[in-house]
Lab assay of single mutants.
Amino acid sequence: MRDETLEPLPKNWEMAYTDTGMIYFIDHNTKTTTWLDPRLCKK
């Protein structure tokens, strides 16, 4: 489920979907991926 109230992704981040429809996030700065939304992981 998407939460439209979240702010935009940080610079150089992208949201993508797996072949089965699961959301993951791509950090183009470090060339890594994560299941965790970077907008929710702020310190």
Results as ranks from 00 to 15, higher is better:
Met1Tyr: 10
Met1Arg: 12
Met1Gln: 06
Met1Thr: 12
Met1Gly: 12
Met1Val: 10
Arg2Asn: 13
Arg2Gly: 12
Arg2Cys: 12
Arg2Thr: 14
Arg2Ser: 08
Arg2Leu: 11
Asp3His: 15
Asp3Phe: 08
Asp3Arg: 09
Asp3Ser: 12
Asp3Lys: 12
Asp3Leu: 08
Asp3Glu: 13
Glu4Val: 09
Glu4Ile: 11
Thr5Met: 15
Thr5Arg: 12
Thr5Gln: 14
Thr5Leu: 13
Thr5Cys: 09
Thr5Tyr: 08
Thr5Ala: 13
Thr5Ser: 13
Leu6His: 06
Leu6Ser: 15
Leu6Ala: 14
Glu7Pro: 14
Glu7Cys: 05
Glu7Lys: 10
Glu7Gly: 14
Pro8Trp: 05
Pro8Glu: 11
Pro8Gln: 09
Leu9Val: 05
Pro10Cys: 03
Pro10Thr: 03
Pro10Asp: 03
Pro10Arg: 01
Pro10Val: 01
Pro10Ala: 04
Lys11Glu: 15
Lys11Trp: 08
Lys11Thr: 11
Asn12Glu: 07
Asn12Ala: 08
Asn12Pro: 04
Asn12Thr: 04
Asn12Phe: 07
Trp13Ile: 04
Trp13Ala: 02
Trp13Thr: 03
Trp13Asp: 01
Trp13Arg: 02
Trp13Tyr: 05
Glu14Asn: 04
Glu14Ala: 09
Glu14Thr: 08
Glu14Gln: 11
Met15Arg: 14
Met15Thr: 13
Met15Tyr: 08
Ala16Met: 05
Ala16Pro: 00
Ala16Ser: 07
Tyr17Glu: 15
Tyr17Phe: 12
Tyr17Ala: 15
Tyr17Val: 14
Tyr17Gly: 07
Tyr17Pro: 04
Tyr17Ile: 06
Thr18Ser: 09
Thr18Asp: 14
Asp19Arg: 10
Thr20Glu: 14
Thr20Asn: 09
Thr20Val: 08
Thr20Ser: 13
Gly21Glu: 07
Gly21Thr: 01
Met22Cys: 13
Met22Asp: 15
Met22Trp: 04
Met22Pro: 02
Ile23Leu: 14
Ile23Gly: 11
Ile23Asp: 05
Ile23Thr: 14
Ile23Tyr: 02
Tyr24Gln: 02
Tyr24Ser: 01
Tyr24Met: 03
Tyr24Leu: 02
Phe25Gly: 03
Phe25His: 04
Phe25Glu: 03
Phe25Leu: 01
Phe25Ser: 02
Ile26Met: 08
Ile26Val: 11
Ile26Glu: 03
Ile26Asp: 02
Ile26Ala: 04
Ile26Arg: 05
Ile26Trp: 02
Ile26Pro: 00
Asp27Phe: 01
Asp27Arg: 00
Asp27Leu: 00
His28Pro: 05
His28Trp: 06
His28Lys: 09
His28Arg: 08
Asn29Gly: 11
Asn29Phe: 08
Asn29Trp: 07
Asn29Ile: 07
Asn29Val: 10
Asn29Leu: 09
Asn29Lys: 10
Asn29Arg: 11
Thr30Cys: 06
Thr30Leu: 07
Thr30Trp: 02
Thr30Arg: 08
Thr30Asn: 09
Thr30Asp: 06
Thr30Ile: 04
Lys31His: 15
Lys31Tyr: 04
Lys31Gln: 14
Lys31Thr: 07
Thr32Ala: 07
Thr32Gly: 05
Thr32Arg: 07
Thr32Ile: 10
Thr32Leu: 08
Thr32Cys: 10
Thr32Tyr: 04
Thr32Val: 11
Thr32Asn: 07
Thr32Trp: 03
Thr33Met: 05
Thr33Phe: 02
Thr33Ser: 08
Thr33Asn: 04
Thr34Ala: 02
Thr34Arg: 01
Thr34Lys: 01
Thr34Ser: 10
Trp35Phe: 15
Trp35Tyr: 15
Trp35His: 04
Trp35Arg: 06
Trp35Glu: 05
Trp35Gly: 05
Leu36Ala: 12
Leu36Asp: 08
Leu36Ile: 11
Leu36Trp: 12
Leu36Thr: 11
Asp37Arg: 06
Pro38Thr: 00
Pro38Leu: 00
Pro38Asn: 00
Arg39Gln: 04
Arg39Gly: 05
Arg39Trp: 07
Leu40Ile: 10
Leu40Cys: 13
Cys41Asn: 14
Cys41Leu: 14
Cys41Phe: 12
Cys41Ser: 15
Lys42Ile: 10
Lys42Glu: 15
Lys42Thr: 13
Lys43Arg: 15
Lys43Trp: 12
Lys43Ser: 14
Lys43Gln: 15
